[in-house]
Design a protein around this nucleic acid. Structure first.
Lengths: 101, 101
DNA sequence: TCTTAAGTTCGATAATATTCGAACTATCGA
DNA sequence: TCGATAGTTCGAATATTATCGAACTTAAGA
């Protein structure tokens, strides 16, 4: 399992983050990760095919929202909370304060 | 000039807002409106065709970000600051705190 | 009333994104 | 070493968005 490419915090772009969050599936993933400290891709697929989920996770990674770490045969995902808060103070809180509707 | 349809604050959807802000032109419009209290469409076109700009303004309106008011032969646009702050506290500040890059 | 200016609406075309099956890689356990 | 499991990558089909010219509408001013 080769390591994922995660952008450095100073390469985060607001537009890319918004683009990532404009999809309901991805927004739901982010909300879920906010509640659970970490989760595997499989825990978050909602019955969707793995290739679709892999696509969504890649977009979340590329935007800098999510960090994925291989742990054995599983991949653990976490929100990049600290870096996001440092780079865009208040943004994550404003997003996650919302109920899931 | 028939009145525009602006969504009520309780109909704002985070995903729609993100989708609206994921385009660099629209993000720039919002940033500009943050600085100038109000502006016409023409002031913000950056040389682009009117039909393209009209499209972008409609998306910003539909998302609830921008209010457009006909004033004579011109259309004045404003950020829906108060309503956005009430509905998504901190979101607008977090976005606009960012430098334009 | 004629003209001009500001936007909108309507197509059509081009560019992006999403979805998902199939084949592939890596890791664990038996 | 042989599955089995978790995800990735590829490719193709579909759907959504963006762009822009042309025709239209409204309001203001000469």
């Amino acid at each position: 399992m080769r390591p994922y490419k995660h952008p450095a915090a100073d390469q985060f772009a607001l537009e890319r983050i918004f683009q990532a969050l404009s999809d309901p599936i991805r927004l739901e993933i982010v909300r879920h990760l906010d509640r659970v400290t970490e989760a595997t891709c499989g825990e978050l697929d909602g019955g969707r095919p793995k290739s679709s989920m892999s696509h969504h996770f890649r977009i979340l990674r590329d935007a800098g929202l999510v960090h994925t770490r291989g742990a054995g045969t599983v991949h653990q995902n976490t929100l990049r909370r600290a870096e996001l808060n440092a780079r865009f103070p208040g943004l994550l809180d404003a997003i996650l304060a919302q109920p899931a509707g």
